[in-house]
Simulated scan of single mutants.
Amino acid sequence: MRFAMVVAFAAALAGCVTSPVDYEAKLSQQDPKWASPECQQARMAASDYAAREKEHPGWGFGVLLGPYSMGMVAAVKQHEQQQRRLLARQVHLQCSSRPLPKELDFDPAIYAPKKAQYP
């Protein structure tokens, strides 16, 4: 029971990160960086990610596989949250001259895959 509560809490947190496309809409189009090619690439990457995110089966898929798949679904949701944060950060850096907001001011290396060391 405790595991189910942890999974539900993690899933609730996974949905808290703003979509990079929604974040992009909040930025000023009057900023000189907005028209740059780097900004256009970052916005395109954000919209491509949003389209891919809508394609996957989501929570319904995990429910169909049974209670043991809830951990897998939670891990997928956590990965999506990390990708949203990274893309929103990239969009801000490429499209805005303003300093990074507190929620995007992190080291992107924390989401890099860790090297496994085997004995």
Rank of each mutant, 00 (worst) to 15 (best):
E53N: 07
V73D: 05
S28F: 02
L104T: 06
R98T: 10
L104D: 05
A35Y: 04
M44R: 14
E53F: 04
P67F: 12
C95S: 06
A75P: 00
S96I: 06
G66Y: 10
F106E: 07
L65F: 05
Q82W: 05
V17K: 05
L87K: 03
Q83F: 00
H79M: 11
S28A: 13
A14S: 15
E24Y: 00
P108I: 04
A8R: 13
A109I: 01
H79P: 00
R43P: 01
W34Q: 08
A4F: 12
Q40V: 11
P57C: 10
K26Y: 03
E55R: 14
A74Y: 03
S96E: 06
R52P: 00
Y23P: 04
P113E: 11
R85H: 01
S19Q: 06
A8K: 09
S36H: 04
K54E: 15
M72D: 13
L65Q: 10
P99E: 03
I110C: 03
K54S: 15
K77Q: 11
Q29W: 01
D105R: 11
P57T: 10
E80G: 12
L86R: 05
R52F: 05
G62V: 12
T18W: 01
L86N: 02
A51D: 09
Y49P: 04
C16K: 14
R52Q: 14
P37Q: 11
A4E: 15
D48C: 04
A8F: 07
P113Q: 08
F3E: 12
D107E: 06
A8D: 09
A10S: 12
R52I: 02
G58D: 05
D107P: 03
Q117F: 12
S97C: 03
V7W: 07
F61V: 09
C95I: 09
Q82Y: 02
L93E: 15
R43N: 02
A4L: 14
E80I: 07
Q41W: 01
A35L: 06
H79N: 12
S69V: 02
L27K: 01
H56G: 10
D48I: 08
A74E: 06
R52W: 02
S47A: 14
A112Y: 07
L100Y: 01
A12V: 09
L13F: 07
A88M: 03
P99C: 03
A45K: 12
L93P: 00
L64C: 06
V21P: 02
R52L: 12
Q82A: 12
A109T: 13
Y49Q: 11
V6Q: 14
L93C: 02
A4M: 13
A46R: 01
S96D: 13
D105K: 07
Y68W: 13
K26N: 09
R89P: 02
G71A: 04
H79E: 14
Y68D: 06
A88E: 06
L27F: 00
D107L: 02
S96F: 04
F61A: 14
W34K: 00
K77G: 13
W34H: 13
P101E: 06
V76G: 08
P99L: 04
D48V: 10
R98V: 03
Q90T: 13
A75E: 11
A51N: 09
T18V: 11
